[in-house]
Design a protein around this nucleic acid. Structure first.
Lengths: 178, 178
DNA sequence: TCGAACTTTCAATAAAAAATGAAAGTTAAA
DNA sequence: TTTAACTTTCATTTTTTATTGAAAGTTCGA
């Protein structure tokens, strides 16, 4: 019996690939509590060799001016998108941080500041209630302490990573595997 | 001049602390794309010394039967909540995984399977488009390759962590700090 | 096999989040 | 200044997501 193996290599063209990338990034963002437009604008900027104007972005993603403006601002608040000016032009242009390691570092930094640290504070408050000897109080204290400890450890790890040089991921990986 | 330092120690009672914990966990979940009810049910189970019935949960969180049922199922799909039966009772009871390290490991495992791996596949497809010499194509290939590499590394790290023994966090931390 | 005790499903509704676009605001060159 | 080019804001609308609850489904003991 003859067996025939066929290897399908799917090769998209530029536009297909670009759209696939942008829509995948948008869908992934949604899954992580980031709105679609914001994730898509970011995806678009990350693969664009040139800075883009607001008009460019609106046109490309078919979204309104207001939406574009608000989401660009949020991306700038996260420190991963920047305004740029071209000489002799009024219009503002936007670029993304292009170095993915720097991008990861910046996102880690912001998530720590915005989410992890406030959570740690509350876990600490909750785990400091007065022990009254009941099982439910014991369990609440025990579990919030455990979560507090884990959150603390994560935060320290993330901050370690944030302060790390360019190749931290490779190095951390080597260390973990050893 | 006399300086007086006052240290305020906020001590909530059990119910305040419990509510604070449950609502904080819910709000945090929302931020991460997890619905409020699901996060709150999980929070409730994690601090409950005894398994709870559907009635208990509905009552405690003031949510409907359907909502409770669907979210419990999702939590079970994530492998972090389990059904339990009490002898001689028809009713089903639910408990959460109580070990926060095991919890973290389970969540890491599922997120890798559900999100990271599909994303890696798409980044791979996109980065394999035909190089046509234009700047935009070059940039698309370069950036999706960089993201692919980072996602791969993260996935390897997460799987490493998943396979790790109980104290992985402490150990990983020691290694990173060294 | 019945029926009571319980759970799941799902169409309908409610709530929350995102998007729109026109008006108000800003800026810089003339 | 004025004005034209551009950006931001925010009340309104649209879309998406979560929730409800009643009907259908399941399971087990008698």
């Amino acid at each position: 019996m003859k067996v025939r193996k066929i290897l399908y290599i799917c090769t998209m063209n530029y536009d297909e690939a670009k759209n696939k990338f942008i829509s995948t990034w948008g869908a992934l963002g949604t899954l992580w509590g980031i709105n679609k437009a914001m994730a898509q604008i970011h995806a678009l900027l990350i693969i664009s060799p040139e800075p883009l104007s607001m008009e460019d972005i609106m046109e490309e993603l078919q979204i309104s001016r207001g939406n574009t403006s608000m989401n660009l601002r949020q991306l700038m608040d996260w420190g991963i998108v920047f305004k740029e000016n071209k000489m002799g032009e009024r219009k503002e242009y936007f670029t993304s941080e292009k170095d993915v390691q720097e991008l990861a570092r910046q996102i880690a930094k912001e998530r720590s500041r915005r989410e992890l640290q406030p959570t740690i504070k509350i876990l600490n408050d909750v785990s400091n209630i007065k022990e009254d000897g009941t099982a439910k109080t014991k369990e609440l204290i025990k579990q919030t302490k455990a979560l507090h400890e884990m959150a603390d450890t994560l935060d320290i790890m993330m901050n370690k990573v944030i302060g790390q040089d360019q190749n931290w991921i490779a190095k951390a990986l080597v260390k973990l595997i050893k």
